[in-house]
Nucleic acid binder design. Structure first.
Lengths: 327, 327
DNA sequence: ATCAGCTATGAGAACGGTTCCATATTCATG
DNA sequence: CATGAATATGGAACCGTTCTCATAGCTGAT
């Protein structure tokens, strides 16, 4: 059941059927004729033949660091929704936080035009990343990080943590900070910078011993909290770069006999499902992950349909959820 | 840079280059000649042209109910790993728990052979599902549910909950159960049946009022626990079909002044990240989700390479993690 | 009446591979 | 020495579209 068959049944040439399916320039009579035949036969054009001819695959590559993550899950949900609406399918590439694999996929997708566009949910940028992204000949949207010269959608990490820290400082004067490595600009550097700026803005000095760097895990949050408690026993607040780190810190504080929030306030970032359920529930930042996925996908669809080559930047809003781990 | 170019540079016909890329039947000299040219030029055959001719897309459709889920995330991680190793890419279809969308994708994937195979992470089977699956002309592997006549990989929900319940009954005599709808055979019917069988095996009677049906959410776990507490105030254990339900139940129990596990033991299923962190930590069942994804993918790859049409069934093992929400 | 410009259509060449078929060469075998 | 397999190779058809180009009919202006 191919286009020739349809053409024969409708008594027209296959060029006309093709035009019917695409542009137009088909007289009303023929149009109706073809429509009826297609309807009767249930004909669906072969995407593969189309792809070979046009070079368009109707596929979008989505590169993610870790599928099993609250934020990534939400983003991908938003992405798939929008792309499906626009007739695109999602080719998923899970890199398991391996930077090398990330670059590999970037190249794999670009090579031979396997996909029409790429959404990269980013954490860090190495030289290899820059090279790979720059040499791409298809549109790409970076999600979760800002990257000069490229379209991107990202969270307002700085202002979120800035606001959060300032609200904490209303009742705390000896805050500590547990962050993640600064290679991750959004979650690492920006959040840390925001914390320090907020402290400075309220004339609160923070000793280096009250600042630790964790990985993204609960356990490392525990260990970092322990270090800070040992070095700065009178710490009365812990601003954490992620919810998971905050959970680890809370467990540690409890074991040190500290009451939350009476003795030590704790905050996270991300509004994970867990944060609402914990006791005490965690004061945290809610980011619009799903919406950011939606916006990134829209941005990519626009770029794929008519690429003016102009990069756009979209910074998402946020909300601070004050719960019972702060006062 | 196409196959003609390579053929010209190597001084052979493009048929020979094609053979070099696929079967063989190329003399050693030509083989080396072609190899060198390909190496120098960095030529990569067009998958699209290949697809048009052979009908093989090297794509696998993975249909998932909800990307933002611990178990699904782990399964997909396992799937992508194996498929990538075998040269396949994953086309992700997120259905957001919409049965209709699930069937739509099943048909979409099958129609026009967009993919070489399908992995369906299943929750329920409607008539439409059966019809769609049966009319598939490509291999399919069901993950998470058993389906007669089709290859599938699934968790041993029955024995897991059976064992778990019996261990609870060592110290409880008035257990309650909070499940999910029985349309979901694995998580709904099997787990419930296991609970009842385990109770019967230890001569424990369970009143209907001590059994409630929740959705998969924390909140509904709370509500169901409340109902049971009202109807059966002396309930001394709550076996829950999922971890999330158990979290909701725990919150409710606390608000009713019940101590966990002294007054009421609580168990979940799934070993979510949360379950380890909660206080008290949750006694639950650990399923090998990642491995089940790996196995499903292997099964599918086998079926795609040489389909003998014989369906296989793989039931995964499990482990019970006894934590502090039980005694 | 002629010609430019528009609409509508079909023929046929791509797109970039795979694969069937024919043919040529080599080599062992009766 | 003739025959038949096995090994290597090239020619050409084919997969199912899109798209350029040529052409034909029609309208309205000069």
């Amino acid at each position: 059941m191919d286009i020739n068959e349809i053409a024969k049944l409708a008594g027209v040439s296959r060029a006309t059927v093709s035009r019917y399916l695409n542009d137009g320039y088909v007289s009303k009579e023929k149009r109706e004729l073809i429509a009826r035949v297609i309807n009767e036969t249930g004909y669906v054009p072969s995407q593969q033949a189309r792809t070979l001819r046009t070079g368009k695959t109707k596929l979008v590559g989505v590169i993610i660091p870790k599928i099993n993550s609250h934020s990534v899950g939400r983003m991908v949900a938003g992405i798939t929704k929008v792309l499906a609406q626009n007739g695109y399918q999602v080719l998923l590439a899970n890199t398991d936080n391996d930077e090398k694999v990330e670059v590999d996929y970037l190249n794999l997708f670009a090579e031979r035009n396997k996909v029409d566009g790429i959404i990269l949910i980013a954490t860090v940028f190495t030289h290899a990343h820059h090279r790979a992204i720059d040499s791409l000949n298809i549109p790409v949207v970076i999600l979760g990080q800002r990257l000069d010269g490229h379209s991107c959608v990202y969270q307002d990490d700085y202002h979120a943590v800035y606001d959060l820290t300032r609200s904490i400082l209303k009742t705390s004067r000896t805050p500590g900070y547990i962050g993640v490595y600064e290679k991750d600009v959004a979650a690492g550097r920006e959040r840390h910078r925001a914390f320090l700026d907020a402290c400075a803005s309220m004339d609160v000095a923070v000793s280096p011993q009250a600042q630790e760097s964790a990985t993204f895990s609960v356990d490392s949050g525990y260990l970092c909290a322990e270090k800070i408690l040992d070095a700065v026993p009178d710490v009365d607040a812990l601003v954490c770069a992620t919810d998971d780190i905050a959970f680890g810190a809370m467990t540690c504080l409890r074991e040190y006999g500290k009451r939350i929030p009476e003795d030590v306030q704790v905050t996270g970032v991300g509004d994970s499902k867990l944060s609402k359920i914990m006791t005490p529930s965690l004061t945290t930042v809610h980011f619009y992950y799903l919406t950011s996925g939606v916006e990134a996908a829209k941005m990519l669809v626009d770029a794929m349909t008519d690429d003016d080559g102009v990069p756009r930047e979209l910074r998402m809003g946020y909300e601070i959820y004050a719960r019972t781990s702060s006062r």
